[in-house]
């Protein structure tokens, strides 16, 4: 499977990649986007099976990316890894079609719990 990791923080993309490996998902094809606009473009051009996105990013926020994708008929599996987590955000994410919401800081166990059912 191909997984797109969208986060404006290079450090956080690296930590997400490392945590995916620790949780046993390192064999998947991992690609990275450094802001919301790039995430939107790469989701279209790279056609990943899963998008793991930050919320607060320059250009487009994660929720804007998700909404644009869904408005364009793209149903890629999409969810958030973010340091912010309010009930409103979770509700917005869910109603926009998000599959998961992981709060930073996170553990490999949390990744396993969320991604095992998605990635098999």
């Amino acid at each position: 499977m191909k997984i797109l990791i969208a986060d404006d923080s290079r450090v956080m993309r690296q930590i997400v990649v490392r945590t995916l490996r620790q949780a046993g998902f390192g064999d998947h094809d991992l690609v990275e986007a450094a802001d919301g606009k790039q995430a939107l473009e790469m989701t279209k051009s790279e056609t990943p099976d899963l998008v793991i996105s930050d919320w607060n990013m320059p250009e487009l926020t994660g929720i804007e990316v998700l909404r644009e994708l869904r408005a364009g008929g793209n149903n890629v599996k999409f969810g958030f890894v973010t340091s912010e987590c309010t009930p409103e955000m979770m509700q917005q994410a869910e109603s926009a079609g998000s599959l998961f919401f992981i709060v930073k800081p996170f553990s490999a166990e949390r990744f396993d719990e969320v991604f095992a059912p998605i990635l098999g």
Binding site: S9, V11, T82, S83, E84, T86
Partner: peptide, 13 residues
């Protein structure tokens, strides 16, 4: 930046 962002995000929540 990430250290401030993680704790700031948790505060915001």
């Amino acid at each position: 930046g990430e250290l401030a962002n993680i704790v700031g995000g948790n505060v915001k929540a």
